[in-house]
Amino acid sequence: MSEEKFVFDSLQDSETIKAFLASLTEGFEKGSITLSTNGDAIELKPDGLLNFIVKARKKGTENKLSIKVEWKDAAKLKKDTDEKLKVS
Score class of each variant (00 low, 15 high):
T16V: 11
I33C: 02
Q12H: 09
E29P: 03
L11W: 05
D73F: 09
G48M: 05
K72C: 09
S2L: 14
N51H: 10
I42Q: 02
T61C: 04
D40V: 04
F52T: 08
A41S: 15
K68Y: 09
D47H: 12
G31R: 13
V7T: 04
E70S: 13
F8M: 07
S36N: 04
F52V: 14
S10L: 02
A41R: 09
V87P: 01
V7S: 03
I42T: 03
V54Y: 11
K84G: 09
F6G: 01
K76G: 13
K45I: 05
A41F: 07
F20L: 06
L65P: 04
I33R: 00
T61F: 12
A75T: 13
E4D: 11
L49R: 15
K78I: 07
K76W: 04
A41T: 14
G31L: 04
T25A: 11
R57K: 15
K68H: 07
K64L: 11
L11S: 11
S2A: 14
F6R: 00
K58D: 07
F52W: 09
K72R: 14
E15K: 07
E62P: 06
E3H: 04
E83H: 15
G27F: 00
E83M: 05
I17M: 01
L35I: 01
A56C: 15
I33M: 06
L50T: 10
E15M: 05
L44T: 03
P46E: 00
A19W: 08
V54R: 13
S10D: 02
L50M: 14
I67P: 03
G27D: 01
K76I: 11
E26C: 08
D40N: 07
K72Q: 04
L65K: 03
I67M: 01
K76N: 07
A22T: 12
I33D: 02
K79H: 08
F52L: 10
I53F: 12
I67V: 03
F28V: 07
G39L: 00
I53N: 15
E29G: 10
A74M: 10
G27H: 00
T16Y: 01
D80M: 13
F8T: 00
K76T: 12
R57A: 13
D80H: 05
E83L: 13
I33N: 02
T16E: 03
T61P: 05
T81D: 11
E3F: 06
